[in-house]
Simulated scan of single mutants.
Amino acid sequence: MSRHDADLELALRLADAADAITSARFRAHDLAVERKPDRTPVTDADVAVEDAVRAVLAADRPDDVVMGEERGGTLDAQRVWVLDPIDGTKNFLRGVPVWATLIALVEDGVPVVGVVSSPALGRRWWAAAGGGAFMSDHAGERAISVSGVRALEDAYVSTTDLKSWVEYHTRDAFLRLVDATWESRAFGDFYQHCLVAEGALDLAAECVANPWDIAPFQVLVTEAGGRFTSLAGEERYDGGDVLSSNGHLHDAALKLVGR
């Protein structure tokens, strides 16, 4: 049980509403795509999801603030719902089924509820502060926890795009981590942090990330028993980058890849 159970229930309903929209528009022949100033794509589904979620929140939590990728907002409030209507939009518009809606409730600067829903994968992950972490898939619902791997040489690590390390940090930093671990993959975006939370991966590192890209994972990964920090080692979701881990490997990984 968590004191945020009612907020978690609402977040799960918001995810249901989002899934109905994204599932209907995935692989649609008339999908409308535009390019934002930062050259990232946005589809009509992104906007429709955010608008639908905002409408429910306006009715059910009128005193809360909303901050979304497509419509903007502020994080400077006691209670803020942080939304990414479609994380993995490039996958979504190309027909790759690895994308999700991300929903987080942030209280006093700390994420306390997180929901990640990936209908094309048939998976959903959720957590509330003090209540544990969970997922559902074809096998049903279950509690999840991070892996027990304690040595970097046995670790499985992921990122999104190696080119981003050149632009926003250094390629050498990530390659140092890769060279120290067992295997590396690029599961990318939301999926890698969910896999850390459920114990399938041991580390996921991003050298650039917006608050809406990672807010749910601070509560999801920590409730699953792991650690979630910026590359500077700060326990925050708005530091512009992120390292999520099973906890055992976190400090050793930060020494190699941290700022």
Rank of each mutant, 00 (worst) to 15 (best):
P37C: 13
P37K: 04
P37L: 06
D38E: 13
D38K: 06
D38Q: 11
D38H: 08
R39W: 12
R39V: 05
T40G: 12
T40I: 14
T40A: 12
P41G: 04
P41L: 09
P41K: 04
V42P: 01
T43E: 05
T43Q: 08
T43A: 15
T43I: 08
D44C: 02
D44N: 15
A45K: 14
A45C: 15
A45G: 15
D46A: 09
V47A: 12
V47P: 01
V47H: 03
V47G: 10
A48R: 13
V49D: 02
E50K: 03
E50P: 07
E50T: 13
A52H: 11
A52D: 13
A52W: 00
A52V: 13
A52I: 10
V53E: 02
V53F: 00
V53H: 04
V53D: 01
A55M: 09
L57D: 00
A58V: 08
A58Q: 07
A59N: 07
D60S: 06
D60I: 09
R61E: 00
R61P: 01
D63Q: 14
D63E: 15
D64M: 00
D64E: 03
D64H: 05
G68W: 03
G68M: 03
G68N: 01
G68I: 00
G68C: 08
E69H: 01
E69Y: 00
E70P: 02
E70I: 02
R71H: 01
G72W: 04
G72D: 04
G72T: 00
G72N: 04
G73V: 07
G73W: 01
T74H: 10
T74P: 07
T74I: 08
L75G: 12
D76S: 15
A77N: 02
A77Y: 00
Q78N: 09
R79Q: 09
R79S: 10
R79E: 14
R79T: 08
V80I: 04
V80H: 14
V82F: 07
D84F: 10
D84M: 09
D84K: 02
P85D: 01
P85K: 02
D87W: 04
D87N: 13
D87C: 11
G88W: 06
T89L: 02
K90F: 09
N91G: 11
N91F: 00
N91Y: 00
N91Q: 11
L93W: 01
R94C: 03
R94S: 14
V96E: 15
P97C: 14
P97I: 07
V98N: 06
W99G: 06
W99V: 07
A100M: 13
A100D: 13
A100H: 06
A100R: 08
A100C: 13
T101R: 05
T101E: 07
L102N: 15
L102Q: 10
I103Y: 02
I103N: 03
I103K: 11
I103T: 10
A104D: 10
A104M: 11
L105W: 01
L105G: 14
L105F: 05
V106A: 09
V106C: 11
E107Y: 08
E107G: 06
D108H: 15
G109P: 09
G109E: 12
G109D: 03
V110A: 15
V110I: 11
P111M: 04
V112L: 03
V113N: 12
V113K: 10
V113M: 07
V113T: 09
